[in-house]
Design a protein around this nucleic acid. Structure first.
Lengths: 226, 226
DNA sequence: GCTTGCTGTTACAAACCGTTACAAACCGTT
DNA sequence: AACGGTTTGTAACGGTTTGTAACAGCAAGC
């Protein structure tokens, strides 16, 4: 069970959905939001290109990044059943999502029983993924968290057909830190120390994984990748 | 939006479900598990009496309590779609759940369209709840976390018709600490300090809330109990 | 009554991470 | 090429949390 800062793909034919749901392509430039907490809920989204962060906001201003989404990930399912979205989603780079209007998705579920179960499965997967991160946040020290995070990012790139050994982080140190419940300086230090131990090469957002097993043992062995 | 160490009630007529699903009552004595990670998935459960903790286990032995469930809460939805359960659920006291065999639930959804949407809503609520706790764990210091936790427990007792000002915690300091990503000594110290500030009375597991507003301001104002 | 074991509390020391501050690298713009 | 603004890296210091230990309360069992 991968950690995954997100759940994952619908695993269903988007073309089949298209027959019942009017799919609109939405482009976002870096920094732009798909939706923000409080805006009326109307659709869920499938990431087609680029990447996004989701974040929670408290009344008193505290904020926490709760996940990063990339191609194939669903966005907005946490707000199903609500009148308004419950969180913020912001593009980390120029990106594109496909908008799936929710009333239409519901209707499509009646014609495609498979879609309903896929959607339910996606929701359950999201819960499992969140719980895995809770386990990680609650039990690993700073440096280990960063190691686990890198392994997760690597695994997700691998699933998309990209290199798991060499990739560019799309998020800032601050976003990473927020997600990992750390300060950005601590993330910097952790990355430096992982470099000192020859587990990785870091050049700002460019990461080269030199020793997967080293990282894995830091992260609690096979917590990510596979 | 309350935090809730759990999502919440199905909000649907259990009698209506009974017409399509063979509901079995299962009693558990304190310490007994409903299921453990790895056991074949076959049913979801509705808590009827008592309370349970859910916990995640890593391959290397790390363990984390991810929630506490009481009357009206659903258990097992995170494992929907899997062959085996992904976490452990253990009774904190002598308790009872109603077992809802999942294949039967799926079939019932066809006859009761309402049930399907309720279930989806329950899953989405679970995600939102987990995210709220991530926000809390990521942004509040130890003492504030404990305050937020107490407010959440109080709110949940209130929803069940019990006192929100005077209640008995059903979980040990160790379980509380695990859930809050703290050490049990830290929880003890935090409770003592909340007592010193006259926010609460503590007598081991017996809690008396003396100053709700004080607690709330610690927890980031109306994060719970709204 | 007396263990035995578990749970909870408290004190003190130690470790880790956060805070603060500043420097360096990068980016887009001029 | 030079300029500001943003992001990232590094360091010293301080504070919160943890680790360790000893002790008290409580329940079950002998």
């Amino acid at each position: 069970m991968a950690l995954a800062a997100t759940s994952n793909d619908l695993g269903i034919d988007i073309e089949a959905i298209r027959e019942h749901v009017p799919v609109r392509r939405c482009k976002n430039i870096a920094g732009q939001s798909i939706y923000r907490a409080g805006q009326p809920f109307g659709a869920i989204y499938l990431v087609h290109a680029g990447s996004y962060k989701t974040s929670e906001l408290a009344e008193d201003g505290r904020e926490q990044v709760t996940g990063f989404r990339m191609r194939g990930d669903l966005i907005g399912v946490e707000s199903i059943g609500l009148k308004t979205y419950s969180s913020d989603v912001i593009a980390l780079e120029d990106s594109e999502v496909w908008e799936l209007p929710y009333p239409a998705v519901l209707r499509a579920c009646l014609h495609m029983p498979e879609l309903q179960s896929r959607l339910t499965f996606a929701l359950a997967a999201e819960i499992r993924c969140d719980r895995s991160w809770m386990l990680m946040l609650g039990t690993l020290a700073a440096e280990r968290r960063v190691a686990a995070f890198l392994l997760d990012v690597a695994a997700r790139y691998a699933r998309l057909g990209y290199s798991a050994k060499h990739f560019i982080l799309r998020m800032s140190r601050i976003d990473m830190a927020s997600f990992l419940a750390l300060k950005h300086e601590t993330v910097s230090r952790a990355l430096s120390r992982l470099h000192d131990q020859s587990f990785i090469d870091v050049q700002r957002r460019e990461i080269r994984v030199l020793d997967v097993d080293g990282l894995r043992s830091m992260a609690g062995i096979s917590t990510a990748l596979n």
